[in-house]
Design a protein around this nucleic acid. Structure first.
Lengths: 192, 192
DNA sequence: CGATGAAATTGACCGTGGTCAATATTTGGA
DNA sequence: TCCAAATATTGACCACGGTCAATTTCATCG
């Protein structure tokens, strides 16, 4: 039962996603306008909101999908054997996350899951990213005194911090990659 | 020269701030509406935007001031001698930051300084917070292998992470204080 | 096929943040 | 005291996300 989803629905959703993607390709994520999307998709405004809870939900989906593709690439890599390698491995993801201030804001807003209860695509990618790093650290542990999971959580915290500071005019003289390496050295290879 | 600021200006700004503060007291930060604020202040809408760049800028100011007051209290404390004490010392700040999801969003959005260049009140408080923690760690260092500044940056990163996860439905079973202690133990007292 | 209920779509409408040319007020100098 | 330049205020207007009752389309069954 519940043969709910009609063909029409899939087609409409695809049109909306295509239109949104096209707008983003042209002017970036921040420039995406719901009004323009429905215009291009040739549907009414209300239709948009019967497919996506709000504009943010669409962003969540599009950005989440993009992150997932980057994680595919990262997951295919061998476990890094040095801090520098680990930072290097994460750079494609960081580059995307920093492509627009707006994108990073959306990611932050959804990383801890959307306001109420349900986990969205971006939140899922944070879970997945943690898993990938955990696996690395399980194969090739840097520290033995704490679990791989905890180490991975820290890696994530420092990644976010490195990106945040890059957007901060007080601290943007240091590149995120350099800063990340500093953090990871201190976090994963403490000498005292 | 530049005897710019008129008496009138100060009065108007005070009226706007008072009205905003009153609304927040009644319904929380999220419920604040610019239209209602100008109504209560008895000025035109345009006046609001000649005093504050946008709604966010007012929030930045109000929330920044609140954080500053919490930092006053924290700064007056003696340097903590244990991780538990340090987490305890930071709790008033964390409690405020988590009072509303919206508040935390505003803080995150401004922690890395507003979009373009200039540092706002909230960003200043992040600088100040780092200084306070740095001073603690200078007086009573936990680690010797990295600078107090770097340790402080990590403390900040983990504070943000602990709060973010609290808002995440995947991870909100652990209280932020507990999580923060776990992080700080691993960060400030590594045993390998 | 025609009827019936469920699901998708529509578009006029609203809330609210933000703009700007016109107007009013203040200030400092002659 | 009066005038011109600087500064502050006004409110009609716009942009854009989001809502919802009415309407259209679809799937199923007798």
């Amino acid at each position: 039962m519940a043969k709910a989803v009609q063909q029409r629905t899939l087609k409409t959703r695809a049109k909306l996603l295509d239109a949104a993607q096209a707008m983003i390709s042209e002017g970036g994520y921040e420039a995406m306008r719901v009004e323009e999307v429905v215009l291009r998709a040739g549907v009414a405004k209300g239709t948009f909101f019967s497919h996506f809870k709000d504009k943010d939900a669409l962003m969540d989906q599009l950005i989440g999908a993009k992150i997932d593709r980057h994680l595919d690439g990262i997951e295919a890599l061998d476990a890094p054997t040095s801090i520098a390698e680990m930072a290097e491995a994460m750079m494609p993801l960081i580059t995307f996350m920093t492509c627009e201030r707006y994108v990073f804001d959306v990611i932050l807003r959804h990383s801890g899951a959307a306001a109420n209860a349900d986990i969205g695509p971006v939140a899922m990618t944070f879970g997945r990213h943690a898993e990938v790093v955990t696996k690395w650290l399980w194969e090739k542990p840097f520290r033995k005194d704490i679990s791989a999971e905890l180490q991975a959580e820290g890696v994530q915290a420092f990644m976010v911090q490195a990106i945040s500071l890059m957007f901060c005019s007080l601290h943007n003289s240091v590149a995120p990659r350099e800063r990340l390496e500093t953090y990871l050295n201190a976090w994963l290879m403490p000498t005292a």
